[in-house]
Design a protein around this nucleic acid. Structure first.
Length: 425
RNA sequence: GGAGAAGUACCCAAGUGGCUGAAGGGGCGCCCCUGCUAAGGGUGUAGGUCGCGUGAGCGGCGCGAGGGUUCAAAUCCCUCCUUCUCCGCCA
């Protein structure tokens, strides 16, 4: 959510910046009228309430003095009726304004390149050497099916499309990656481990920005107003919803493993094979609550910590600075980390590291105080995948495949794989 | 899932229609006394947010949340949420 005061005082500048996004912001034009009407109504109704409070005191005094107050009471009846009417109006305007504000995306940071879509994302660095194969390389779903470590067919029988069974060393690899990443972030990068609920309520989904605009992307629990989490970002960020965090706790850094659930509405037919796009996948997430003045420095740190995982796994990747048209709804700045997927002969997103500035904090009401007397300010929130596990498995299978169809296990994972160095039949 | 009880400021807690922004403790700040410590006395302090105003300030809201009754609600009514106790079910 944007700062109403900013919107009020610098409407044209804000609108101009929002126009750099690839989104329809025409609804914004009603803002000024709504804001004006709201403030006017508040003034009217508060004046009446002030009067009512004053006269109520007088009535109570008259009652105590055993004087007749009936004429004043009669007058106040009318005032109260008027108050009720104005309160209703105010509620309506508030609702409209809120509806509008919750659907306005974040303002892009000036360092985000201006552009329309993914074509305009800026590659800022590359790491690792892309392997050239001396034999016919295979896609990860073929490798995995041959090795009997992934079973897509049975998963679609048991559930449906875009689900998978991991089996044997496949399941072990997935679990090894989770533990390896969690250990790295906890022991080397100083994060506190969190295991969150996999379902959250509507307020939480609104707090991090998945709602109200993107409800069709989430799985909804039928009997409750709960949603399956699309990422651990939602429960972990909302841990501190409606809180004032002690300044000495900033930055607060959490890492959380969770399963993630996405309806993938609108991506029918894309990445139908393999692990790239599933309705349920595992992810290790990094979340940081920081002071506003630190947030861009913290974004670099967070991104480097996600990159570290790929470096240790020795998987080639590149980092993109996402352009204004491809930032998504909530981010002011976002780096995507893309890992090399040989079968695609391209890089594919494996992590997304974002600075939301105060956009989520304002929605979720997460604040801090510089000292006891100071006014509460909104924190800045950041998060990033560190990393998406399924896509990491895909990258490992493809990048570490050998001519005989077996998979060499990256060295850092071997302690987590019972000392094995190869996945074979 | 059933039956009961409760939710008041940083914490505990009083308060069944007007004199309650809310008694009383604790805590916290300052002062005094006791050469230290323990203890004692005095005194001060109560959140957040919205609107108006350049500002000092003025005003609205606020007793779990949201509605309602009333001239007036912490107090009466309705809905919801959370916590606790008992019962049932259960990994």
């Amino acid at each position: 959510m944007l700062d109403v005061k900013l919107l009020r005082n610098q409407f044209d500048e804000v609108k101009e910046k929002l126009a750099q996004r690839n989104e329809d912001i025409s609804a914004l034009d009603t803002f000024s009228d709504l804001d004006e009407k709201r403030r006017q109504t508040i003034q009217e109704v508060e004046e009446l309430k002030s009067r009512r409070n004053k006269v109520s005191q007088e009535i109570s005094q008259m009652k105590r003095d055993k004087k007749d107050a009936s004429s004043v009471i009669e007058e106040m009846q009318q005032v109260s009726t008027e108050i009720k009417k104005l309160d209703d109006q105010l509620r309506e305007v508030d609702e409209e304004l809120n509806h509008l504000l919750l659907r306005i995306p974040n303002i892009p940071h000036e360092s985000a390149p201006i552009g329309a879509d993914e074509e305009d994302n800026e590659e800022i660095r590359k790491w690792g050497d892309i392997r050239s194969f001396s034999f016919e390389k295979k896609a990860h779903w073929d490798l995995a099916t041959d090795l009997d470590i992934l079973d897509f067919e049975r998963a679609s029988k048991v559930t449906g499309s875009r689900f998978v069974f991991y089996k044997g060393l496949g399941a072990r690899l997935e679990r090894a990656l989770i533990n390896f990443m969690m250990d790295l972030h906890e022991d080397k990068h100083g994060y506190t481990e969190v295991m969150p609920p996999y379902m959250v309520n509507r307020d939480s989904m609104t707090g991090t920005g998945q709602l109200p605009k993107f409800e069709e992307d989430a799985f909804k629990i039928r009997e409750e107003d709960y949603f399956l989490i699309p990422t651990a970002e939602v429960p972990v960020t909302n841990m501190h919803r409606d809180e004032i965090m002690p300044i000495e706790n900033l930055p607060t850094a959490y890492t959380a493993y969770s399963a993630c659930f996405r309806s993938e509405a609108g991506s029918a037919g894309r990445d139908t094979r393999g692990l790239i796009r599933q309705h349920q996948f595992n992810k290790v997430e990094l979340v940081r609550f920081v002071k506003p003045e630190d947030s861009y420095e913290q974004l670099e740190l967070l991104t480097s910590q996600a990159e570290k995982v790929l470096q240790l796994l020795e998987l080639p990747y590149r980092v993109l600075n996402m352009c204004t048209g491809d930032l998504g709804f909530t981010a002011a700045k976002k780096y995507d980390i893309e890992v090399w997927i040989p079968s695609n002969e391209t890089y594919r997103e494996i992590s997304s590291c974002s600075n939301f500035e105060s956009f989520q904090a304002r929605r979720a009401n997460i604040r801090f105080k510089r000292d006891k007397k100071a006014k509460a300010e909104y924190v800045h929130t950041l998060n990033g995948s560190g990393l998406a596990i399924g896509r990491t498995v895909a990258a490992i299978l493809e990048n570490y495949q050998q001519e005989d169809g077996t998979i060499e296990i990256p060295e850092v994972l071997r302690p987590y794989m019972g000392g094995k160095d190869t996945i074979s039949k």
